[in-house]
Simulated assay, not measured.
Amino acid sequence: MSLRLSTVILPLDRWHEGGCAKWQRAEDLGFHSAYTYDHLSWRSFRDGPWFGAVPTLTAAATVTQRMRLGTLVTSPNFRHPVTLAKELIALDDISDGRITLGIGAGGSGFDATALGQEAWTPRERADRFGEFLPLLDRLLTEGAVTQEGDYYSAVEARILPGCVQRPRLPFAVAATGPRGIRLAARYGQAWVTTGDPKLFEGGTPEQSRAALAGQIDRLGEACAAVGRDVDELGKVLLTGFTPDRNAPFTSVEAFVDFAGRHQELGFTEIVVHWPVADSDFDIDPDVFEAIAAEGAGRLG
């Protein structure tokens, strides 16, 4: 299977001061998908411009035609399944069925406390995600939903007319732990990982690939447990968080080597960050464009 190459565009720019042009350029470069982060703010970008994911994707849908669009990722940190479902069917409609929802359990960053709540423990995040995702699945596939949960409820919630994509838009479920991987196996059309965070600082590329291979093995076991073929799921690697950091983006050759090694593990899509100067994603724009133009084609 050929390897798809996608990008993630951080929502940093005013739409008429560079934001629009990036999304259009991403399509011109031939990326399979262009995603954006769904956060209220994020890490070193906290004190600078940061725009909302759904409005950004809505605008992007109106200035592109072929490229898929999506979040990478949305989480329950500041979302509710009912309101999110309503926004998603509108976005899927405006894009004429080009939306993928990347979704995960969330983390302990700024989103976790921006609404005034205490940050949830890892177990509570997993508990909430385990309730959030099945309810969102029902909302996007059924005409009316009533469900009472410990964290999320819906009372005669009508998400009509539903998605353009049937039976609903695809979920790309970000997960590395056992509970999240089980949810990916049951509800996902794709699975997303950034690698093993424990290896980011002190690990080696070889250790990282071994950890990723283990994650894919566990995904296969989870799929088998629910009667699914693991090959039905796309396997998405969001780059920039493995021990290699930006080394694969120093040249087309370095990227082809990196991507090929991960393709051999079973990955079907590699996502690279659009360059952001003076940040963790400070990639040479010329090399980035060369990778987009040549990288995926050389992988076959």
Results as ranks from 00 to 15, higher is better:
Arg79Asn: 09
Ala60Asp: 04
Thr83Met: 14
Gly106Leu: 11
Gly102His: 02
Phe78Cys: 07
Gly70Pro: 11
Gly102Gln: 07
Ala59Lys: 10
His80Asp: 05
Gln117Phe: 14
Asp92Phe: 09
Met67Ala: 14
Ile99Ser: 03
Asp93Gln: 11
Gly97Phe: 06
Gln65Glu: 14
Ile99Gln: 01
Ser108Cys: 01
Asp93Lys: 12
Ala85Val: 01
Asp96Met: 14
Phe110Arg: 01
Arg98Tyr: 05
Leu101His: 02
Arg66Tyr: 06
Ser95Gly: 02
Thr56Trp: 05
Val73Cys: 09
Thr58Tyr: 00
Ile94Asp: 08
Phe78Val: 03
Thr62Trp: 01
Thr58Trp: 02
Arg79Pro: 00
Pro76Glu: 06
Asn77Glu: 14
Gly106Val: 08
Ile103Ala: 01
Gly104Leu: 14
Ala61Ile: 07
Arg98Thr: 04
Ile94Gly: 05
Leu57Tyr: 01
Gly109Glu: 14
Thr71Asp: 07
Gly116Arg: 10
Ile99Val: 15
Asp92Lys: 08
Phe78Ala: 08
Arg98Ala: 07
His80Arg: 14
Leu72Asp: 09
Glu87Cys: 02
Pro76Arg: 14
Leu115Phe: 15
Ala59Gly: 03
Asp92Glu: 08
Thr113Ile: 15
Gly106Ser: 09
Leu101Ser: 05
Arg79Trp: 03
Gln65Phe: 03
Ser75Gln: 03
Leu115Thr: 13
Leu88Phe: 08
Asp92Leu: 13
Glu87Lys: 06
Arg66His: 15
Gly102Cys: 08
Leu101Met: 03
Ala90Ile: 05
Arg98Lys: 13
Phe110Thr: 07
Gly107Lys: 02
Thr113Asn: 06
Ile99Asp: 02
Thr113Glu: 12
Arg68Glu: 11
Ala61Glu: 05
